[in-house]
Design a protein around this nucleic acid. Sequence first.
DNA 1: TAATGGGGGTTTTTT
DNA 2: ACCCCCATTA
Length: 689
Amino acid sequence: MFDWLEQLNEEQRAAVTHDDGPLRILAGAGTGKTTALTARVAWLLSNGTPPERLLLLTFTRRAARQMLHRTGMMLAAQQRANPLRQAAGHVVGGTFHAVAHRILRRYAEALGIPEGFSVLDPADAADVIDFVREEGCYAQTSGRRFPRKGLLLEIYSRAVNTGQPVSSVTAAVAPWANELVDQIIEICREYVTSKRVGGMLDFDDLLLLWRAAVLDDRLGPRLAGSVDHVLVDEYQDVNGVQVDILKALRKSDDRISIVGDDAQAVYSFRAAEPRHILDFDQDFPGARTIVLTTNYRSSQQILDVANAIGAEAPEGFSAVLHAANEQSRERPRLVRCADEDSQASTVCQQVLAHREKGTALKEQAVLVRAAHHSHLLELELSRCRVPYVKYGGLKFIEAAHVKDMLCAFRLVDNASDVLAWFRLLQLLEGVGPTIARRAVAALGLNTPDGDPMTRGQVLERWPSAAELLPVSARSHAGVLVAALEVRDGEGVPAHAERVRLALTPMIESAYPDARPRLVDLDALVVKAAGAARLSDVAADVALEPPRSTSDLAGDPTIDEDWLTISTVHSAKGLEWDVVHVLNATDGMMPSDMALGSPQGLEEERRVVYVALTRARKALHVYVPLRYHHRPRGRGDSHGWTQPSRFLSDDVRSKFDEATVEHESALHTAHPHVSDGYGRVDTDLEALWS
DNA sequence: TAATGGGGGTTTTTT
DNA sequence: ACCCCCATTA
């Protein structure tokens, strides 16, 4: 027996050493779900499964990396006693989308997809929809409020992922647009055509085409046959398309292991359905289910809070969590603050206090429902010189110049990419939407059969497109187009550098603050060093957006200590000694955006549950009692908040409660304390002198 | 036709 | 606070 196997409990060991056939591990928060799946990978490897015949699907790349790292450690420990040659690093793994992308690149030809296809991130996809929307003049002719690109994409994507018709999705998501459903459907159709013609795939296409590939009579068996075991993490967050893929992959070989927890399903907005984990034994007949209930993460006091919140769900949560750890002396704290300013300074002080008591910043996290909820705290942390890294905002790829560069990369492999042309041409001085549109039309990307054109065909027409541009713009454009051409014997990094050089003057003239932007272009050239082709760089950045700007520039502060700020969604699967949960008020947590339906409210409850169960030793929940309508506005327009509806009397009884008085006399903590005369006196005092 | 400035509507979570 | 749309100006 291996050491690491000895350290598992009975259920975990049963799960890890389960022999063949479908396996479902239902694992509550902190019950060693990752440990079990990791150990199972190690177990399979040590039993002789070649690493490349394992397919490990995780929710984030971060989780995949963590899992492979831990697997590697287990195998290394075992190798000391009994040398084996496997390396965990070769396990095929990643998110569904990333794996789909890899497969589609490899089998593009067999699937009839252009080999240099572009991957559209959601913002790109929305831009393509907008292009279609503008072209058809829908907004003008309808004469009324018309859904905008973001909403149109949401409707399209939901329909695709749930298999529901656009009409019912529209009725559910945007009932006010019900009468426009015919136009919406038309836009969806044209969107699909545009993508086809331009050789562009959006995130949904990656899954749809992977599904098509595994369902294909010729390709399917080949794909399925190359995998011995499929392992899936966070199964409560899969959607119907993903389940289809798994079923097709395991049609004639039922070795699949999944882990998940329906109490932590928080991705219904992405068409995930917790029903799939409950129906696993129907989708994969003969499945064995193992339930992990012992929590190794949190103190019982913290679990009491989480259990109390779960108990109030209409149907309850299936698992009640029990702590295996010895009790911490600290009860969870519910801290009422005067307002968000006060909350920010209190959190900052608490973080520092814990640090003084010996909990490094890296062992602490601040969790928020929405990325912008941490804004004031970030200011305060900067003021107090507390370093932090924020996860959950998608800043970097949204930066315009980054998209510009990625579009150029895409054009190198896919000259038909309409969106990339449209975007890059508008960087030129004197070129706006109209001219760009005409020039793109002159490239004649629309072929009769609807397939993308080759680079040669497109570039042949470039001169006629260039004629439509203002004379002053032609030289920059010409340089860029020349840089797109592939030279024999030139490596990908050198080509990336050539593209950067061509793009630099365009960026300089298009953006007033060009200098810091050019640094990011360098970072993208560096990223190109390891890529097989330039469009892969664009796809990688889209599929795995750097969570923070520091991500892309490597990690210079690796030895330093920093605090984590994260959305609850991005914090899933992670844990810290000390967790601070911000804005536990009605409207923020639960988000009032979600209150339209009972299911929405229940999902919010699970979000809170996920947040609370991230904490190992100490948990602080903050409730600002009032908030400013306009952030930082001197106008002092504010409203009173309600504490989150999840903080019932029963839940509150598990907390130590505290109220923080604000240090400033301008912000009184309690509604009934009024010091009107005092203020008037102070104000007047100034006049008497 | 492109660039620019003001006003109105919207405002979650992520692959 | 931000994005989008529109009217105005160059």
